[in-house]
């Protein structure tokens, strides 16, 4: 079984189109100013519907990270242990990624890279930045 390929919808299509162009797009609310990820039709902070897409510089720090030994499917188990991290991006939003190029700890600085997954491109992070 292959690793899951994200299935974009109307909320997220601009984000995934950005990833295909190696551009990390996130939403910012014009009413309250909060950065938002994942993308939604409204701002979850103030319910405002005036959201703009911005492009992240692609740098952040690890909020938490675990090394997974038992993946959910054969496709992941074949990788051996892999790291899953929650990354706080410098623009003020959080996303999940696997860590490439070394082992991260809480606080490790990382930068976004992109990997092909099926017909999509998914963001990941590598150590550094």
């Amino acid at each position: 079984m292959e690793k899951p390929v994200p299935r974009p919808n109307a909320d997220s299509a601009p984000f995934w189109e950005g990833c295909a162009a190696h551009e990390f797009r996130f939403q910012r609310c014009n009413s309250c100013g909060k950065a938002q990820f994942y993308p939604r039709a409204i701002c979850a902070n103030c319910r405002g519907d005036d959201l703009d897409w911005e492009v992240s510089v692609g740098k952040g720090a690890v909020h938490s990270v675990t090394t997974v030994s038992r993946g959910p499917s054969v496709a992941f188990k074949e990788d051996g242990p892999y790291q899953v991290a929650l990354v706080d991006m410098d623009e003020g939003f959080r996303f999940m990624a696997n860590v490439r190029g070394g082992e991260a700890e809480i606080g490790t600085r990382v930068r976004v890279i992109y990997e092909k997954r099926g017909d999509q491109t998914i963001p990941q992070v590598e150590i550094g930045g």
Partner: peptide, 19 residues
């Protein structure tokens, strides 16, 4: 879209909490 592609499991999610 934002968790399953990274091989997140329920234990992994709780491990993030634990760390």
């Amino acid at each position: 879209q934002y968790e399953q592609p990274y091989g997140m499991t329920i234990p992994a999610a709780y491990a993030l909490v634990a760390q």
